[in-house]
């Protein structure tokens, strides 16, 4: 069995013939969702995504697409096969970013205008809790054991650690200016938080009981680029933890960071104002949304090189890829 999987993985890497996945891209200004085939890298569909679609995620089985329709003040749900709108979920006002728990039952939604994190049940379509957080909540992360949800607040400049047991904040960690995104490693022992205006990524060690300790701050430097434009936003970490990818906004680059030494190894040039990132399920490719050039860049993860860009809708914001 193991050999079989290994062989098919190899085959996939070598030619990747079938087993195409779909990437869904939310277009903030165009109010649409673009669907891209991750085999041919061609746009196969573009459909109405509600008003100002930003955060975008999938149910664990890949059948349902959830979209934060920020200006509609709700989460829209679409069928990933037919692209039909199925239902909508209450989200609280101005939902921007969210995370879904591994069971697919709970959505944790940042309400940017209301200083709240809303917890929504995807089955009963009801709000389970509203957690008051700092000013302008944005980044959302969930620990692999689903015991913790982390929210970052852009004007308060904190990462808030919310226990999913009782929806109470247990820890607050001050980070640099305008924290945009939070990401755990797959083993749950580390958390990364990007600070757009501070220009840093805060690194926290996470104890077995979930307690965070700030251990390092990663900063960036690119010759010929003003330091002011190195604005970290989206973060993804490979499943083995060896590489961290950080989107640098108006610097039009994705930083490649060594997961062990936390040193920046390289900067990959992508489209303009790079915002969010998503891996394909095999982590062979990393997709970036480029808000000002209206495209996504495909990065070959092993080679750490950009291989292609695909035109999508107006002002692409978020991206998610269906699981295998």
């Amino acid at each position: 069995m193991k050999t079989l999987i290994a062989t098919s993985l190899l085959a996939l890497l070598a030619a990747s013939p079938s087993l195409a996945n779909k990437a869904f891209v939310s277009n903030e200004r165009g109010n649409t969702i673009t669907v891209v085939d991750t085999d041919t890298w061609e746009v196969i569909q573009e459909f109405d995504g509600g008003n100002r679609p930003r955060g975008i995620t999938l149910s664990p089985d890949g059948r349902k697409l959830y979209v934060c329709a920020s200006d509609d003040n709700l989460v829209r749900v679409f069928d990933t096969e037919t692209y039909r709108e199925l239902e909508s979920l209450p989200s609280g006002p101005d939902p921007e970013l969210f995370v879904i728990d591994p069971t697919g039952r709970h959505l944790y939604i940042a309400n940017e205008d209301d200083n709240l994190v809303t917890v929504t049940d995807t089955e009963t379509r009801t709000v389970l809790a509203e957690v008051p957080v700092g000013v302008e909540p944005e980044g959302m992360a969930i620990s692999p054991d689903a015991k913790w949800v982390v929210n970052t607040s852009e004007t308060t400049n904190m990462a808030h650690f919310i226990s999913t047991e009782d929806y109470k904040i247990r820890h607050n960690v001050l980070v640099d200016q305008r924290p945009r995104y939070a990401q755990y490693t797959d083993d749950g022992t580390r958390l990364f938080v990007s600070a757009e205006i501070g220009g840093t990524v805060s690194v926290m060690d996470i104890a077995p009981d979930g307690t965070p300790t700030l251990v390092d701050k990663i900063s960036f430097e690119v010759p010929g680029v003003l330091p002011e434009w190195l604005q970290p936003v989206g973060i993804k970490v490979t499943s083995d933890g060896s590489r961290i990818f950080v989107a640098l906004g108006p610097a039009n680059r994705v930083a490649v960071i060594d997961g062990e030494t936390l040193e920046v190894l390289d900067y990959i040039i992508v489209g303009q104002r790079v915002w969010q990132l998503a891996f394909t399920p095999d982590q062979a490719y990393l997709l970036t949304t480029n808000g000002n050039s209206n495209d996504i860049t495909i990065i070959d993860v092993a080679a750490e090189k950009a291989i292609k860009s695909v035109q999508v809708g107006q002002q692409p914001w978020g991206v998610v890829v269906t699981p295998n």
């Binding site: 008051p132 700092g134 000013v135 607040s153 004007t155 308060t156 400049n157 904190m158 808030h160 607050n172």
Partner: peptide, 11 residues
Amino acid sequence: DEDNGTTGTFL
């Protein structure tokens, strides 16, 4: 005052 106060609640 609202913005500072919200941050202040955590401190």
